[in-house]
Amino acid sequence: MNNEFQLEMKNIRKSYGNIKSLRGVDLQIKPGEVLGLVGDNGAGKSTLMKVLSGVVIPDEGEFYYEGKKVKVDSPRTAKNLHIETVFQDLSLCDTLSVANNMFLGREPTKFVGGIIDQKVLHAKSREQLNRLGIDISSTRLAVENMSGGQRQAVAIARAMLFQPKVLILDEPTAALGVKEVDMVLKLIKNVKEKGVSVVLITHRLQDLFEVCDRIMVLNEGKCIDDRPMDQYTLETLIKSIMGSPERTNAS
């Protein structure tokens, strides 16, 4: 199909019983592009991102990756396409350690029988936390008693571990303090430089204006606005989120 897109989704539909969460959504993203995804609570943002990461199977819709039609029918296939996600609920296992959470499903092993190479596991986790400037005293700690910010940081560190080509961040800054939010925004700019496509969901509009190239607005399972960043003002963006987008040339 169109080779300039890193990935393209067409006509994605998903219903839960009577609830139509996604009613035919299209989404394209180029390499190195940061796409903001906004909309009211319940608009379908998280569902769309779950479809993108293979966690939810859509009822209908097509998926193109680097121009080729693909089937993303499991979390594994999405990972194989280098699509990494920080889920809104973080998806951490409370009783597992920081390192085990970060490498869950991709543990470095040695010998036979999948024995985890503890040394490599903890060294790599530590290295990653340090690289991202995350302050966690030991990678052996269970995540259950950590602060919301630390848990979120662990989830972000995990998503960054295996060189994503598409990075999905579903409200990654909800539990973060000012300093950590800055860290995440820097991280987004950083990976963008390397050609990574980023989808950012957030309610912090100032963050969108700082890092996004384009913003897509969802409303009741449909895309109602999709424009380059420079065509939005704070005011027009808010109007869009409220469900009544202005025409582009009006601003």
Partner: peptide
């Protein structure tokens, strides 16, 4: 992990 959060484990593939 499954005992702690099955869906989280599933999402890692």
């Amino acid at each position: 992990g499954i005992g702690a959060n099955e869906e989280a484990v599933r999402r890692t593939g």
